[in-house]
Amino acid sequence: MIVVEVLDRRGAVRRRVWLRAFPATLGRDYRSDLVLDDRYVDPTHARLERDDHGGMVLTDLGSANGILEPSGGGRVGRVTLHSGTVVRLGRTVLRFIDPGQPVAPALREDHGPRLAIGRSTPRDLALAVASVGVLLFNQYTTATGRETLTNLVGGTLGILVAVAAWAGGWALVGRITQHRFRFREHFLIPAAALVVLLASDTLGDYLKFLWPGRVDWELGVSLVGLTVLVAALAAHLSRVSVMTRLRKWLWSAAIVGVLGAMVALSDDDGDAEFSDQARETPLKPVGARWIPTESPATFFKRVERLQAAVDSLAVRMASRDSLHLE
């Protein structure tokens, strides 16, 4: 017994036919065992039969358009079929399946209602409250004027609306691809990402404040940020598709990588080594005795090295200029 699947242009199964007796004929003729409604298919186009080894073989019966191996393959007179072999007859794509072939286990069904926001677990609720709290706190501590409650809430609401719009977009995609809206989950992903990003930013500021100049803390914060973005994207993707775990991480990393590279390229016109290094210097309310310090003498010893740095910069800038002139 063999299952023949007639596929549509996007590869979805349109019709599934069980052939039990062989040889069986395929064609437009109504007496065929598998009737194909395709003007490019001959009345008696091909024959399906067992070969000497017990395998299945499809043979062209001298048709006008023949049997084609799909994806650009040429015309063949005879094809040995395995489970999953795809061929084209005229404009019809057929896939042959051995009914004994094992199938993938069932996907776990989300039993929640299809459109509603969904029931929140205590963990979700805690995450939502934490993100709103962190946003409010961040808004409050970075305000430079006399802040009113309305200003603070307004600013935070603005960010939440943006997050909701983002979540709504993903939820719509999920509704189309997976028939599941899952707004709550798509909302919590960026909320959690925001909490991690703001926390790592603050931590980076404190590290930079306490131990300036020795480690590139900013690079660390950027790496954490990129990782968080990849993770968030992977989490969104796993909710709108049935991609394997590896594929969804690769896709996320690729998307973030491309976006990151575009931002990096637009930031810097190729003269990064000649750009000014006057970066932000955060100040933090830390008690004097907790701040690691050096003596003025050791600081100025380090300053001494700047002369050589600036002088070699001048030399490199001069050689760059002479290159540009040529």
Binding site: G213, R279, F299
Partner: peptide, 23 residues
């Protein structure tokens, strides 16, 4: 040329000073 800086936390005469020198 472009600017290059050194940043440090310097302690002197009982004061802790965030110190930036650029040139």
């Amino acid at each position: 040329t472009s600017t290059r800086c050194k940043v440090g936390n310097v302690r002197q005469q009982g004061l802790v000073l965030k110190t930036v020198f650029c040139t």
